[in-house]
Amino acid sequence: MTLTLDNRSQNKESSLTQALRQIQQLNSRIAVLEQEHRDYVLKQQNLINAIAEICISPMQEIEALRVLIYRGEGDCRRYLRSVLVKRRKAL
């Protein structure tokens, strides 16, 4: 009888330990995702500031935002570089 109770309590303890480990792993993953999200938001804010500084006309700003939304950060940065290159060539 004592052996059966000990096995049950060990099983419960190992289940609790396993659940606790899984919770800790999830909390770690959540922390990583939160940091990645903060980094992403900061990049987007910096990119939007760059759009405002680089683009001369509202149409360029609209196009840059459109590129950012539909094609992503990399394409938006390429678009902004092309705007700068065109401006330098015009001077």
Rank of each mutant, 00 (worst) to 15 (best):
Q10I: 09
Q10P: 14
K12L: 12
K12V: 08
K12F: 09
E13H: 11
E13C: 08
E13F: 11
E13K: 09
L16V: 04
T17E: 06
Q18V: 14
Q18C: 14
A19M: 04
L20Q: 06
L20G: 01
L20S: 02
R21W: 12
R21P: 03
R21C: 04
I23N: 03
I23L: 10
I23K: 11
Q24H: 13
Q25K: 12
L26D: 03
L26N: 02
N27Q: 05
S28Q: 05
I30Q: 11
A31Q: 08
V32P: 00
V32I: 15
L33F: 08
L33R: 08
L33D: 05
E34H: 08
Q35T: 13
Q35I: 15
E36S: 13
H37Q: 11
R38I: 14
R38G: 09
R38A: 14
D39F: 14
D39Q: 15
D39S: 15
Y40R: 09
V41E: 05
V41C: 04
L42R: 15
L42C: 13
K43I: 09
K43P: 01
K43L: 13
Q44S: 11
Q44P: 00
Q44I: 13
Q44H: 13
N46E: 12
N46W: 12
N46P: 04
L47W: 13
L47E: 15
I48Y: 14
N49Q: 05
I51G: 01
I51S: 02
I51M: 02
I51D: 00
I51A: 01
E53D: 10
E53P: 04
I54F: 04
I54S: 11
I56E: 03
S57L: 01
S57Y: 00
S57T: 05
S57G: 01
P58A: 00
P58Q: 03
P58E: 06
P58G: 03
P58R: 02
M59W: 15
M59F: 14
M59K: 15
E61I: 06
E61D: 10
I62F: 10
I62Q: 11
E63Q: 12
E63C: 12
E63I: 13
A64S: 08
L65D: 05
L65I: 07
R66A: 05
R66F: 08
R66E: 03
V67S: 01
V67C: 02
L68R: 08
I69P: 00
I69T: 01
Y70K: 10
Y70V: 07
Y70M: 10
R71Q: 06
R71H: 07
R71V: 07
G72T: 00
G72F: 01
E73C: 02
E73G: 04
E73N: 02
G74M: 15
G74Q: 15
D75C: 11
C76Q: 02
C76M: 01
C76R: 03
C76P: 09
